[in-house]
Amino acid sequence: MRLIVSGGGTGGHIYPALAIIEDLLKQEPDSEVLYVGSKRGLESSIVPKQGIDFIPLEIQGFKRSLSMDNFKTIKLFIKSVKESKNIIKNFKPDVVIGTGGYVSGAVVYAASKMHVPTVIHEQNSVVGLTNKFLSHFVDKIAIGFNEAADQFPKEKVVFTGNPRAQQVANMQSDFKWSTIGLSDDIPTVLIFGGSQGAPVINKAVVDSINDFNSRNYQVVFVTGQKRYDGVMEQIGDQTVNSNIKILPYIDNMPSILPKVSLIVGRSGATSIAEITALGIPSILIPSPYVTADHQTKNTMSLVNNDAALMIKEDELTGTTLVEKVDSLMNNDAQRNQMAKNSLELGVPDAADRVINVFRSLK
Results as ranks from 00 to 15, higher is better:
residue 300 M to F: 11
residue 313 E to L: 07
residue 192 F to C: 09
residue 265 G to L: 12
residue 271 S to V: 13
residue 129 L to M: 15
residue 167 Q to N: 13
residue 94 D to K: 13
residue 171 M to F: 03
residue 295 Q to I: 12
residue 77 F to V: 04
residue 171 M to I: 15
residue 288 P to K: 12
residue 133 F to W: 13
residue 42 L to Y: 00
residue 114 M to L: 15
residue 55 I to G: 05
residue 232 M to N: 13
residue 212 F to S: 07
residue 146 N to F: 13
residue 158 V to A: 10
residue 81 V to C: 07
residue 227 R to W: 01
residue 58 E to K: 15
residue 75 K to L: 10
residue 157 V to C: 06
residue 83 E to A: 14
residue 327 S to P: 03
residue 307 A to L: 11
residue 360 S to Y: 07
residue 360 S to C: 09
residue 62 F to V: 10
residue 311 I to C: 00
residue 257 L to K: 05
residue 104 S to Q: 10
residue 344 E to L: 15
residue 40 R to A: 14
residue 98 G to D: 01
residue 283 I to K: 00
residue 40 R to C: 14
residue 88 I to A: 01
residue 222 V to P: 02
residue 265 G to S: 14
residue 338 M to F: 12
residue 352 D to W: 06
residue 197 G to K: 05
residue 167 Q to H: 11
residue 316 L to R: 01
residue 344 E to G: 01
residue 114 M to A: 08
residue 42 L to I: 13
residue 13 H to S: 01
residue 52 I to W: 08
residue 99 T to H: 07
residue 11 G to H: 09
residue 49 K to V: 13
residue 8 G to C: 02
residue 290 V to P: 01
residue 80 S to R: 05
residue 197 G to E: 09
residue 205 V to D: 00
residue 256 I to K: 07
residue 196 Q to M: 12
residue 165 A to D: 05
residue 124 N to S: 10
residue 185 D to M: 03
residue 264 V to F: 01
residue 266 R to T: 05
residue 72 K to E: 14
